[in-house]
């Protein structure tokens, strides 16, 4: 299955291409969302649509400076729009075999290799529920 490959700082991650609608340059500012968790950057407008954007590094619990320069990977699955803020997008690669998780996490499906690079493949459903929690679900 083809995956979109992207970077958070130096580490590489991948998501199924089917779930990605497009990639855009991250806006300079966002509209803040009330009650939202720290991983939520806010909402942006894209051609009249209001799209929530989440800082993927923070969602994964990674440290590091909250960057402002980067890309937004727009996902479209289960009829909802969601933007993931990432450092950069590197391309599209076929990924078939995914190895086990390095440590248990709902957000990660497992590890794989693309050429010489180690890539973490993310789990869409786990991502979705973590995002919902960031927006104050219950």
């Amino acid at each position: 299955m083809r995956h979109v490959l992207f970077r958070l700082e130096k580490d590489r991650y991948a998501l199924p291409l089917d779930a990605v609608r497009e990639v855009v340059v991250a806006p300079e500012r966002y509209t803040r969302v009330p009650h939202a968790g720290p991983a939520v950057k806010g909402v942006m407008t894209l051609r009249g649509r209001v799209v929530p954007v989440v800082d993927l590094a923070k969602l994964l619990g990674l440290g590091g400076e909250p960057g402002t320069v980067g890309k937004v990977v727009l996902l479209e699955f289960s009829r909802r729009d969601l933007g993931l803020f990432v450092s950069d997008v590197e391309g599209i690669e076929p990924i078939e075999k995914v190895g086990p998780q390095p440590r248990p996490s709902r957000l990660v499906r497992g590890l794989t290799r693309v050429g010489a690079l180690a890539v973490t493949v993310l789990d869409l459903e786990g991502l979705d529920s973590a995002v919902a929690a960031s927006f104050g679900n219950r």
Binding site: P34, T45, P52
Partner: peptide, 24 residues
């Protein structure tokens, strides 16, 4: 509001102002 924004307490909806700015 679509998921996940509909999970946020106290919001009735969103609109986009003439300037393109989204406002809750």
């Amino acid at each position: 509001l679509a998921r996940p924004l509909d999970q946020v307490r106290g919001l009735a909806g969103v609109t986009v102002l003439g300037s393109g700015r989204p406002v809750f």
